[in-house]
Amino acid sequence: MARLLRTVGREFVDSAPIRLVFAAEVSAPPDVVYRALADDVPSWPSWFTAVTQATPTEDGAGREVRLRGGVRFRETIVAAEPDTCYAYRADESNAPGLRALLEEWRLAPEGSGTRVQWTFAADGTGLFRLVLSLARAGVGRSFRDAVRRLDARLAATTP
């Protein structure tokens, strides 16, 4: 059953009790990467395999996301800064023990490509925190694999 989560602002990315931060590089420039993240939300499952469905809502101000295993999120976009930052807060979820969640994607030019930094900022019950800390390596691997697939997808579609 889905339940409402605590509303958090962008500052939560720095103050969350749980912060997982990962970075990787892609060959596409920041504007192309940003469009893939923010404007082409329905394509997320093609490169981020943990995501099974992603749908923009509220004329692009929100998203509904489903993950493998049946976890669902209703989200609000809290930052849409072209070529530099895309962030969203989970407002509702069925994830056990989750109390608050904000994810931020930071983009920075890196050579002829882009450095992509993803911060997963969360709060939850003690058990949720323990499970997430144990899952850190797997979450990082999932991020790196997703960025690698995104890079290949962008290379195949960018002239």
Rank of each mutant, 00 (worst) to 15 (best):
R3S: 14
L4I: 04
L4G: 13
L4E: 14
L5Q: 04
R6D: 14
R6Q: 14
T7W: 04
V8S: 08
R10A: 14
E11F: 02
V13Y: 06
D14F: 03
D14Q: 10
P17Y: 04
I18C: 06
R19F: 08
L20G: 04
F22G: 14
F22V: 14
F22S: 15
A24C: 06
E25C: 10
S27V: 03
A28Y: 09
A28V: 09
A28I: 08
P30S: 04
P30M: 04
D31L: 12
R35G: 11
A36H: 01
L37S: 11
L37W: 00
A38L: 02
D39K: 12
D40W: 10
P42A: 00
P45A: 06
P45T: 03
W47L: 08
W47H: 11
F48K: 15
T49N: 08
A50P: 00
T52A: 05
T55F: 04
P56C: 01
P56Y: 12
T57H: 02
T57E: 13
E58S: 15
E58D: 15
D59Q: 13
D59F: 09
A61F: 05
G62Q: 01
R63D: 11
R66E: 15
R68I: 10
G69W: 02
G70C: 00
G70H: 00
R72F: 05
R74N: 08
R74C: 10
E75G: 08
I77T: 12
A79T: 13
T84R: 15
Y86V: 06
Y88I: 07
D91W: 03
S93D: 14
G97M: 11
G97L: 06
A100S: 06
L102N: 04
W105C: 11
W105S: 02
A108Q: 15
P109Y: 07
E110R: 15
S112Y: 01
G113R: 07
T114Q: 05
Q117L: 09
T119Y: 09
T119F: 05
D123T: 05
G124N: 07
T125S: 14
F128A: 12
F128L: 06
F128K: 13
L130N: 07
L132R: 14
S133P: 00
A135D: 11
G138D: 01
V139P: 02
G140M: 02
S142W: 00
R144A: 14
D145E: 14
D145R: 13
D145K: 09
A146I: 07
R148N: 09
R149K: 13
R149S: 12
R149Y: 03
A155G: 03
A156K: 10
A156D: 04
A156G: 05
T157D: 01
P159E: 11
